[in-house]
Design a protein around this nucleic acid. Structure first.
Length: 659
RNA sequence: GCGCCCAUAGCUCAGCUGGAUAGAGCAACGGACUUCUAAUCCGUAGGUCGCAGGUUCGAAUCCUGCUGGGCGUGCCA
């Protein structure tokens, strides 16, 4: 049962009658959970604007609404407060009956959607053969959580990992393999060697790019220096405003000069790294044209060159297998994994199709689609004949529509690509997919402590697996320390400790990411990602474990408890608050799906677990002297545990019985 | 230059899309383990919601301008 939905149903006709309007959705949206427990459980704020519209006193309107709406079974108290707030307190009887109903079903009181839609979720989508880093985690865990939630709400979901398995990085690896491969290392561990080759080629390309960029950067610095000198030479005019402006301009110019110098330093550092290493330096000297050559390898692969094709076919399965290991650790699964290469042969058809539809035309040698809303075109074929990711994306949409007749396609990709997706959606809607709804589920960048996109000192991003390992190790330390210090001696076997550390460690990393509003950037820190106290997955897992502990200690027959018709009693405020929270699970999931924000679910679960902690402190379960109260509390514990486990599962996070 | 996004407690972030006295976690300080798990709980302290206007019964939330920052901006993905 969704209480909010039920309240809106009760109010709908009455609001139509009182307002004289047919569409009362905007008024219904003003019914919401109370901000403060003193105001009851829910509040309807529609009397104020309605009073204005009807030229009546808002409190009078509120009274009229309350007189007409039928709430006697649902609310024990209704008040009009302040300027015209309608405060609603849900009836305890009603709560207990709903909680009992929810407890008797596996869906925990959450109804499946009456109009299921077909969703395609495009998430994770890493480039294979590059090690996954912290930047990949957001798309992966947000996408996975949305897929799970939509599925639970009754929709059909196709989770598609649109792997980058056809791009420039393969040209780099092929080039590296042809010139630098260590045969023995390759034989021992193919992917590790391929990944080394990728990094090596990347480094050499960077080296030459840096070499080429030094002169331009020096010029830039000289230019900035002269700007600063010019601003410094200006005498104060005496006019306060003018002088302030002047000082600001000078400050800015100095900042820019500093930045330019830093850029030069970073170029020199890259050059220095290579030149200080004799082997690297020789390799660099032997391959001055490496950037162009690597691109050429990619082009040859795409054109069907036998050698490159063969190498690609040898590398790809191994890379995919390797990446699968990370997904297994994260419990992330996909229904399909059609990489970019899958669409390769459809690309010429995309361009010709766009031409025939009068959408694409030649410009500066490239095939472009010009859109009114954008300054720059969407390029679908380069002047050298190669296709781009926009082309692949259009082919992908085409395929998805034919294969699954999708109602909605969600792209979980970081916000820097928002313009690309705007263009893509505009072209697809105008061309081959007029009906489908497409959404860019964008998310912010992972930043370091100084607010810049996260990189290590060497310029590489932090490896994802290393991060997961550290989190699990940290969790293991905490598990062991806690277990060792138990008053009656330790309870957990080594194997159990490892298992708990695994679930808790991975949960912490995922939760740290999912609990942020996805649209904002967030600052990455090891300590924060691995925190096991406060608003973390650990807190929920701990609550769950406490529930299981009660059942163990009390030797509770769970099936019997769930089937018994003993009533839920809400004599204590903490019991009532907990029961209310359990009933609001459905609302939380609706909020997740409304804007595709899993942090609505983490917020809810944290609230629920807090209510449980408070209940746990104040309401003894096994020790309650009244058998009816004991049964009631056991039921509340059971439901809390089930909702927590279920909610965490929708976030892709597990639970353990002991910790 | 143009476009998009952001600015909330010392730090990291929520804030249900306009509601009542702006909330958490961390850090700090003070309490609670012979008690169903202290990975916990209770309490104290901490805010001019970047600045200035506007819209209205009511603004952290909507609009305009400004400041500061991030990102994108024709052949990378």
């Amino acid at each position: 049962m969704n209480i909010l939905a039920e309240l809106k149903n009760r109010f709908r006709d009455v609001l139509a009658e009182v307002s004289g309007e047919t569409d009362v959705q905007n008024l219904l949206d003003m019914i919401k959970p109370a901000q403060d427990a003193r105001f009851g459980d829910y509040q309807a704020n529609c009397a104020m604007p309605l009073g204005k519209r009807l030229g009546k006193a808002p409190r009078e309107v509120a009274e009229e609404i309350l007189n007409k709406v039928r709430l006697d079974d649902l609310c024990s108290q209704t008040d009009i407060a302040g300027p015209g707030f309608i405060n609603l307190t849900i009836d305890d009887q009603w709560i207990t009956s709903q909680v009992n109903t929810a407890g008797n079903e596996s869906r925990l009181g959450v109804a499946a959607n009456a109009n299921p839609q077909t969703f395609i979720l495009d998430y994770s989508s890493p480039n294979v053969a590059k090690p996954m880093h912290v930047g990949h985690i957001r798309s992966t865990v947000i996408g996975d959580s949305l897929a799970r939630t939509l599925r639970f709400l009754g929709h059909q979901v196709i989770a598609d990992n649109h792997l980058g398995d056809w791009g420039t990085q393969f040209g780099m690896i092929i080039y590296g393999y042809k010139h630098f491969v260590d045969a023995e290392a390759y034989q021992q561990h193919e992917v590790r060697e391929l990944s080394r080759l990728y990094r090596l080629v990347n480094q050499l390309i960077d080296y030459w790019k840096s070499k080429g960029g030094v002169a331009a950067q020096q010029e830039e610095i000289a230019r900035r220096e002269s700007i600063v000198a010019e601003l410094e030479s200006v005498e104060p005019s005496g006019d306060k405003k003018e002088d302030k402006k002047q000082r600001k301009a000078l400050g800015r110019a100095r900042d820019q000069l500093t930045q330019a110098r830093q850029s030069l330093d970073s170029l020199n550092a890259k050059i220095q790294t290579v030149e200080s290493d004799e082997v690297l330096h020789q390799q660099a000297q032997a391959h001055p044209d490496i950037a162009r050559s690597a691109l050429l390898e990619t082009a040859q692969l795409h054109e069907g060159d036998a050698t490159n094709r063969q190498l690609w076919e040898e590398f790809l399965p191994k890379c995919r297998e390797d990446i699968q290991r990370v997904y297994a650790r994260l419990s992330v699964e996909f229904d399909v994994e059609y990489g970019e290469s899958f669409y390769h042969e459809m690309l010429p058809g995309v361009v010709s199709g766009l031409q025939e539809a009068g959408l694409a035309s030649e410009s500066e040698g490239a095939q472009c689609v010009f859109l009114d809303a954008f300054e720059t075109p969407m390029i679908v074929q380069k002047s050298d004949g190669a296709f781009l990711y926009a082309t692949t994306d259009l082919a992908t949409i085409e395929y998805r529509m034919q294969q699954w007749q999708a109602d909605e396609i969600l792209y979980v990709v970081d916000h820097r690509q928002s313009e690309h997706f705007q263009k893509l959606f505009a072209v697809a809607n105008a061309w081959n997919a007029p009906q489908v709804q497409m959404h860019h589920i964008s998310f912010g960048t992972v930043l370091d402590e100084s607010g810049r996109p996260y990189k290590t000192r060497s310029g590489d991003a932090v490896g994802l697996e290393g991060l997961l390992d550290e989190a699990v190790n940290k969790a293991y330390e905490v598990v062991s320390a806690n277990d060792d210090s138990k008053p009656n001696g330790s309870e957990l076997s080594e194997e159990t400790r490892r298992h708990i550390a695994d679930v808790v460690g991975h949960g912490a990393i995922k939760y740290a990411d999912l609990s942020h509003n996805r649209t904002s950037d967030y600052v990455f820190s090891y300590d924060k990602m691995m925190a096991l106290e406060g608003n973390t997955a650990t807190y929920m897992q701990y609550s769950y474990a406490r529930v299981q502990s009660i059942f163990r200690k009390g030797d509770v027959d769970l099936d019997g408890l769930r089937q018994s018709d003993s009533a839920i009693l809400l004599g204590h405020a903490a019991e009532r608050a907990l029961a209310m929270m359990i009933l609001r699970y459905s609302e939380a999931l609706e909020q997740v799906v409304e804007d595709y924000r899993p942090n609505q679910l983490t917020n809810y679960l944290f609230d629920l677990a807090k209510r449980f902690s408070s209940f746990f402190e104040q309401c003894p379960v096994l020790k309650s002297e009244d058998e009816a109260i004991k049964q009631s509390r056991l039921k509340l514990c059971d439901l809390t545990g089930r909702v927590i486990a279920h909610g965490l599962d929708l976030l892709g996070i597990g639970v353990v019985d002991q910790m």
